[in-house]
Amino acid sequence: MSPRDVVLTLFVMVIWGVNFAVAKYGLREFSPMLLMCLRFAMVAVMLVPFVRIPWGQMKGILVLSVLLGGLHFPLMFTGLTKVDAAAASIAIQLQVPFSSLLAALLYKDKLGWRRGLGMAISFAGVMVIAGEPRAMGGGFYLGLVVIAALIFSVVNIQIRRIGSISGFALNGWMAALAAPQLLIVSLLTETGQIEMIRSSTWVGWSSIAYMAILVTIVSYAIWYRLVRRYQVNQTMPWTLLVPVFGVLSGILMLGEPLTPAMMVGGTLTLMGVAVIMIRKVPKQNQNQSAT
């Protein structure tokens, strides 16, 4: 990566890490599906009027809207209702071993024993977190976060398949397609939407604005470009920094405790992810990433 892209990637990781704590504030006032619906509606309103319709890529964007807006975020934020921001930011790192598995299946990328070991260690770390007495009641919700991690690894592959497109156009039309999906799901599975909107405070709306502007518009526009420009094994490893900022924001902003099980499980997960990341990209892949 170029120095400029390294700085941009670090900036994205900070935004994503803090987002776990910010989302918890939003979930105090809105249900998960309604929160995501409002988030993507805000994104669509801010971007769609200023970008062209990418007709040739709308099918791929529709698939992305289902994966990212219809599956990943709803699962992620439903999980966040019962899982600490710190635990969720660690569990979501399973997207790295999931990405390696998908690369092996789709691109015939050899895993090797080192990455296999890293996967086993990272999954063991999440199991330690899930087995913590304080988190036992939220095991199902932690599982939702794990599934969200799997879906996010598919999202990165789908972004590469869409091809060259403006990050703002991609974000805007993906949000425009995702918002109605989330509204339907919210109406079918949740109640009291009008009352939640009427009783919401500036804190809840600031949470939505953070997720819409900084996370979806700014950080994902940067991330989409990086994912298209570099190989998965060059971009995904940077997400290792997300739980660092996620844990810190959970402690500082929400007062979440850093328990021994969290420390052991988090360390194992990040160690496993690190083992997967420490891998030289083959020269052939490096040449392909520059095209």
Rank of each mutant, 00 (worst) to 15 (best):
A175T: 06
G255S: 06
V242N: 02
V14A: 13
G163H: 03
S153V: 09
S2K: 14
M196Y: 05
Q181H: 02
T191R: 15
R160S: 05
L34F: 02
G17Y: 00
P54I: 03
A91K: 07
V281Q: 07
G255M: 10
A221V: 12
K59L: 12
V154T: 07
I61M: 10
P133N: 11
S219D: 09
G139C: 04
A261K: 10
V51C: 08
A274M: 05
I213T: 12
V227Y: 04
Q93N: 13
I165A: 01
G204A: 00
I278H: 14
L67D: 13
V264G: 01
W223R: 03
S166F: 08
L27Y: 09
V155K: 08
L182P: 03
F168D: 15
P180W: 02
L68R: 09
V244H: 02
V232F: 09
Q286T: 04
D84K: 01
M236D: 13
A209S: 08
G250F: 01
F152P: 02
P237F: 05
L270C: 09
V232Y: 11
M42Q: 06
E190I: 05
M58E: 07
L144W: 01
V281K: 02
K24R: 14
I92L: 05
L142K: 06
R39G: 06
A274L: 11
L101E: 10
N233P: 06
R279T: 14
R160I: 04
V242A: 00
I222P: 04
I15D: 08
L80H: 10
A290W: 06
I222E: 08
A104T: 06
S31E: 13
G246S: 06
L47R: 01
C37I: 07
A290N: 11
F50S: 05
Q93K: 02
Q284P: 01
N171C: 09
V83F: 08
S166I: 08
S153H: 11
F73V: 09
Y141W: 13
L142H: 07
G137F: 08
M263A: 14
T9M: 14
N287G: 12
V242Q: 12
P243V: 01
L94C: 03
P97I: 12
I276T: 02
M58W: 00
R279C: 14
G272L: 03
L80T: 11
F140K: 03
T216H: 04
A104I: 07
S200W: 02
N156I: 05
L47M: 06
